Simulated assay, not measured.
Amino acid sequence: MIELRELAVGFPGRTVLEVEAMTVPDGALTCLLGLNGTGKTTLLRGICGIIAPAAGSVRVDGQPVRAHRETPATLGMHLDYRAFDPRHTVRRHLRWIARARGIPTARVGEVLDIVRLTDVADRRLGHYSLGMLQRAGIAAALLSAPRTLLLDEPFNGLDIAGIRWLRTLLRDLAEAGTCVLVTTHTLDEVERTADRVVVLGGGRVLADDTLTGLLESRRPAEKTLEDVYLRIAGMPGDPTPAGGRS
């Protein structure tokens, strides 16, 4: 479980995001939504300790983030598909991470099977497509079989088969008790997979509810999750069709 209290995250001289209170529960898939530049990635980086919060607290499984540096099984993350040395193979990359974290290297083969990269595990990462790099990043996040998983835009670049695979993986992890927090702009997948939805905007949390609760908040003119989301985000959809006629 992730617990945020009075959290302020940002950069020197500029606070990007302030979260009064937010809890991401175990055994659930929580999707983090927001327009570009609203602080979704910044929030994930604050949760995992890459960016030190300017104020407030982040606790994972009841402990401050710094306590989890010694226990990598607690927290797994994939925040940037470009965070690879293109000269390395994915197998070499994962073995390096495993050794650094004290994870048995036998686990490398297991996660390669999970993300379906076994057949190309000895190909250099510089030759991988975006979808394959996403799978490689997810493999690294899963190495320690973490109890809490953070993924930033993991559906980007995946083909249709890859999207179905990731959808199933995330649901299986959540149903097994993992705390899963995912950022995405793919609202179809949110409707298919999410248990909870958090909407960011204007540097704060605008909505934090179950998917069912969010959909039940629809106003008479709103038909879809997209309509609800755009209204909460302060960007109501334009009902005027192309060409300017109503």
Rank of each mutant, 00 (worst) to 15 (best):
G39L: 01
S246D: 14
L125K: 14
L32I: 13
Y128G: 00
L130Y: 00
Y229I: 03
V108Q: 09
C179Q: 11
M1P: 10
E222Y: 11
L7F: 05
T184R: 13
D119G: 10
R66E: 15
L200K: 09
M132C: 04
A221C: 05
A176K: 08
R99T: 02
V19E: 00
R245P: 11
P72F: 04
K40G: 08
A207E: 06
V198I: 14
V120N: 12
T71D: 13
N156S: 12
E20W: 14
I50T: 12
F155E: 04
T118Q: 10
L29V: 13
V19G: 11
R219D: 03
V180F: 00
I160Y: 09
P104M: 08
A121Y: 12
L230W: 03
A221P: 04
T210C: 10
G131S: 03
D119N: 07
L169S: 08
H93L: 04
R219I: 07
E216S: 15
L158G: 00
A141W: 12
T42I: 09
G237S: 15
L79G: 02
E18L: 09
E191Y: 00
L211Q: 05
L35V: 11
L117C: 06
M235W: 09
L79I: 00
G10A: 14
V198L: 11
D208S: 02
G202V: 06
P146A: 11
L142K: 00
R5I: 08
V108R: 09
Q63D: 00
L112R: 01
G62W: 03
I103H: 06
G62H: 08
I232D: 04
S129E: 07
L173H: 08
T15D: 05
R5M: 06
V197K: 10
V19P: 12
A73E: 15
Q134R: 02
A176D: 05
D122F: 01
V197I: 10
R91F: 10
G56S: 07
R107T: 00
P86Q: 10
T193M: 11
R82C: 03
Y128Q: 03
P53F: 05
L29I: 03
R192W: 10
A161P: 00
A28G: 06
V108E: 08
D172A: 13
L149W: 10
R107C: 11
N156T: 13
Y229V: 13
D152M: 00
W96S: 14
G56A: 02
M77L: 15
I138F: 04
G56H: 08
R45Y: 11
R101C: 10
G213I: 14
R59P: 02
T23Y: 01
V24H: 13
